[in-house]
């Protein structure tokens, strides 16, 4: 399985790789934590503050419905944003790195 062609440790120390990796970690874990946080807030809110969730905002549409809907909007937003950032930044950095290594 192991390949002898690449010196993996050296690539791992390559500044481009370090940069790529740092950017990715911050971005990916940051957004993941945000969306998971919102999700658990929704679950806890529905469980412990049903009164708040029942407050009507527009017509009979209440906070609870909008919050649950927002969960989807956040997810869509992350999917769009991540796609853009990855295509623009991560893929470019990866390509440069691969080119440099040859």
């Amino acid at each position: 399985m192991a390949e002898t062609k690449h010196d993996w440790a050296e690539i791992a120390r390559n500044p481009r790789f370090v940069e790529l990796h740092r950017k990715k970690i911050v971005f990916l874990y940051g957004w993941w934590a945000l969306s998971a946080g919102c999700y658990f807030l929704l679950l806890l809110g529905a469980g412990y503050t049903p009164g708040l969730f029942g407050v009507e905002v527009i017509g009979n549409i209440n906070v609870g419905y909008l919050f649950a809907l927002a969960q989807f909007v956040i997810t869509f937003g992350i999917a769009i944003h991540y796609g853009r950032v990855a295509d623009r930044d991560f893929d470019r950095l990866t390509k440069e790195l691969v080119k440099q290594i040859g």
């Binding site: 957004w31 998971a36 929704l42 609870g64 419905y65 649950a68 969960q71 991540y82």
Partner: peptide
């Protein structure tokens, strides 16, 4: 509807991590 937010969140984990 609250129930159906779970699966979609599972896919955020899959997408990002």
């Amino acid at each position: 509807f609250m129930y159906s937010t779970g699966p979609i969140l599972g896919f955020v984990t899959i997408l990002l991590l």
